[in-house]
């Protein structure tokens, strides 16, 4: 077990609801190795985004422990969590979530500003370099609305990489894209994993199973092996039972 692995132990998450507590995740324990490209699959409402949010420090568990990049994140305060997230986790959203009033370049610079990662004078050139990596450097000075969906998602990936985080998480990153564009986006994630980053993706798209080294399937808040034949071979060992 490497220190950079993502380790989840006995994780529970409840949400208050009108009829009492809704149990979104129940006793989840798993480990995601560093440098892997991992998928979280499941039906809508199964709890996969909730689990992703826990790993990214976006949400907190009701019970259990999450260790990411050697740090138990459930104990961090909101501000510590923000700082930790900025440096350690790059997040890619389904709807891209680029800030509409900033140019693509400025969107990529923003996380650097927040985390003060690079020298101020170097941030723009670093951002431009990342845009070059994702193939949209020529769109750097345009506003998001002027870009296609695929270009916007590439920009979002560049932004997720702004602070060179060891972990990249993506929630349905291709849900809003056509299959051809989705293919290029998955290829991009694959290259990130190959460069040593841990990439965790929530997806429904079983057509891209070939890219994943690990797949966790969630239903009714519990992790189990997927019955979907498309994912066979990609399913990794899951410790489902309580220790």
């Amino acid at each position: 077990m490497k220190e950079e692995d993502i380790i989840i132990e006995n994780l529970h998450k409840n949400f208050p609801a009108g009829a009492g507590n809704f149990q979104a995740l129940t006793d989840i324990s798993l480990r995601i190795p560093q440098g892997s490209l991992t998928a979280l699959t499941g039906k809508s409402g199964s709890g996969k985004t909730t689990l992703l949010n826990m790993i990214a420090g976006i949400d907190r568990p009701t019970k259990g422990r999450i260790t990411v990049a050697g740090r138990a994140i459930e104990a961090l305060s909101e501000d510590e969590l923000a700082g930790w997230r900025g440096k350690n986790v790059g997040i890619v959203f389904q709807f891209f979530q680029l800030l509409p009033t900033l140019t693509i370049l400025e969107n990529v610079v923003l996380p650097m500003d927040f985390c003060r990662i690079h020298k101020k004078s170097q941030r723009s050139s670093k951002a431009l370099e990342l845009l070059r990596v994702v193939g949209i450097a020529d769109q750097a000075h345009k506003f998001p609305a002027a870009l296609s969906g695929g270009q916007q998602q590439r920009a979002a990936i560049a932004r997720a990489l702004a602070n060179d985080p060891p972990i990249v998480v993506a929630d349905e990153p291709t849900g809003n894209l056509d299959s051809q564009t989705a293919e290029t986006i998955f290829a991009l994630f694959q290259s990130l994993a190959q460069s040593g980053k841990t990439v965790l993706i929530v997806t429904h798209e079983n057509a891209f199973a070939k890219y994943f080294q690990k797949v966790f399937s969630i239903s009714d808040g519990r992790i189990h092996e997927s019955a979907d034949t498309h994912w066979k071979g990609a399913i990794c060992s899951v410790r489902k039972a309580k220790r």
Binding site: R85, F93, Q97, P111
Partner: peptide
């Protein structure tokens, strides 16, 4: 509000 959510996800602290 959603933009605030995005910025926080990108590492912005409450103070920022």
């Amino acid at each position: 509000i959603r933009e605030i959510g995005v910025m926080k996800a990108l590492g912005a602290r409450s103070g920022q």
